[in-house]
Amino acid sequence: MKIDECIGGNIRKYRTAYNMTLKELAERIHKSISTVSKYEKGTISLDMPTFAEIARIFQVSPAMLLQSADELPDINNTYVQSAEVLYMYTYDSPKKCIVQSIIGRYPSVEQNHAYKVNLFNDVHDTKNPGNCGGLYTGDCTKKGFIETYILHNQIAELEYVLISCVDNLVNPYQQLGLISGLSNYTMFPVTFKTIISSIEITNKDVLEEELQFSKDDFKAMKRNQCLTILNSR
Rank of each mutant, 00 (worst) to 15 (best):
A83W: 10
L207I: 12
N121A: 08
S61Y: 01
Q67I: 13
I146H: 12
S61C: 06
N131G: 02
F192M: 13
R223N: 03
R15A: 02
V206Q: 05
G42K: 00
I98G: 02
N77A: 08
N231C: 11
I163Q: 01
A69W: 02
I201W: 04
I229A: 03
P107G: 07
T16W: 08
V36Y: 01
T35H: 09
V80D: 10
S61L: 10
I33G: 04
F51N: 07
L46S: 09
A63T: 11
D125N: 15
I54L: 14
T191P: 00
S164I: 03
C132H: 11
K193A: 06
Y106P: 04
L86A: 09
I150P: 00
D217N: 13
P189V: 07
L176E: 07
K215Q: 14
T21V: 08
M64G: 00
F120A: 01
G130P: 06
E147A: 09
M1N: 08
G9F: 11
N184F: 09
N19A: 05
K23F: 12
G181H: 06
N128Q: 11
I44V: 13
C97W: 02
R15G: 03
V170Q: 10
Y14C: 03
I103R: 03
T194K: 00
Q111D: 05
K38T: 07
N153W: 09
P172W: 00
I33C: 11
T194S: 06
I196A: 00
D122H: 11
Y115N: 02
L178Y: 02
K142G: 11
L119Q: 02
Y173H: 15
I29F: 12
I33W: 01
R105G: 00
F213S: 04
I196N: 05
S32A: 06
V123P: 01
C132N: 15
A220C: 05
Y89D: 08
F192D: 03
C97H: 06
L230T: 14
K2C: 03
V161L: 14
R223A: 06
L46N: 03
I98M: 10
F218D: 04
N112V: 01
T35A: 11
L182I: 15
I229R: 14
